[in-house]
Simulated assay, not measured.
Amino acid sequence: MPRQVREASTKMGLRLLEIGAEVFPSAELELYRDLVTTGRAAGHQPLAFAVVARSLGVPLQEALAAYLFATATSLTQNAVRAIPLGQNAGQRVLRKAHDDVAAAVERVAHLTPDDFGAVIPGLEISQMRHERQRARMFMS
């Protein structure tokens, strides 16, 4: 992953752990937050989300669906501002995303550990190029 994406993910992960520990205190969250703050775990945002969900007893499929839909929502919000897409079109995109999220959750159920870490090289190359541009619309 490009440096910019890694750093953003760990900052968001730590913030999520801080909020989670305050709102939903648990021994699991405290332990993981301690590992992150002492540098023994990176604390990337998806992992922090998983620890929060697990500590709350959220079933895996529900946690995956919530995470994926939150990601779709975030990307749609960016598109509404950047394209501009428009609020109504953004809502239509999110409605359509429900079916895609359900399909993705189903697909994840059939993945193996060998699939962990699969990436889209073109996206990562674009992210690395973005990191070095003189002017950017959004900073990660």
Rank of each mutant, 00 (worst) to 15 (best):
E22Y: 00
L29Q: 02
H110G: 09
E30N: 13
R54E: 15
T71F: 02
A82W: 01
A63Q: 14
L60D: 14
L94S: 07
D114Q: 15
I125T: 05
V119I: 08
V80A: 06
R129G: 11
P84V: 07
R92P: 08
Q61D: 13
I83K: 07
P59K: 08
L85V: 01
E30S: 14
E22M: 01
R81P: 03
P121E: 15
Q87R: 04
H44K: 09
A72L: 03
T71N: 14
L123W: 04
A89W: 04
I120E: 15
V105S: 14
G43W: 02
T71V: 04
A97F: 02
A63N: 13
R129Q: 13
P121Q: 12
R134T: 05
V52Q: 03
E28V: 00
L35R: 07
A89R: 06
D114I: 03
A104Y: 05
S55N: 08
V80Q: 07
Q45V: 06
Q45E: 14
E106M: 11
V52M: 07
T73G: 01
A48S: 15
R54H: 09
L35N: 06
I125P: 02
E62V: 00
L64I: 09
N78D: 08
L111F: 00
V101D: 09
S126N: 11
S55Q: 05
V51S: 02
T71L: 12
L68K: 01
E62F: 00
L85I: 03
S26P: 02
L47Y: 05
Q61Y: 06
K96A: 11
A70I: 05
Q127V: 02
F69M: 12
R134G: 08
P59N: 15
P121R: 11
A27R: 03
T38P: 02
H130M: 07
P46G: 10
V51K: 08
L47C: 08
D100T: 01
T112S: 14
L31N: 10
G39W: 00
L56Q: 12
N78Y: 01
F116Y: 14
F49W: 13
V23D: 11
Y32R: 06
V58I: 13
P113D: 14
R132Q: 12
A41E: 12
A89C: 06
A48G: 10
T76D: 12
L75A: 08
A72F: 00
M128K: 08
Y32K: 06
Q87S: 10
A72R: 00
I83S: 09
R54F: 02
S55I: 05
R33N: 11
R132L: 15
R132A: 12
L94T: 00
G43S: 11
A65K: 04
A70V: 03
R107V: 07
Q91K: 11
A42I: 00
L56M: 13
A66T: 13
G57D: 07
K96V: 05
S55Y: 01
A63I: 12
Q77V: 08
S74E: 15
V119D: 14
G122F: 03
D115S: 07
P84S: 07
M128A: 13
V52T: 07
N78E: 11
L75E: 11
V36D: 05
L29V: 00
P25Y: 02
A103S: 10
T38Q: 08
Q133V: 13
R134L: 03
Y32S: 09
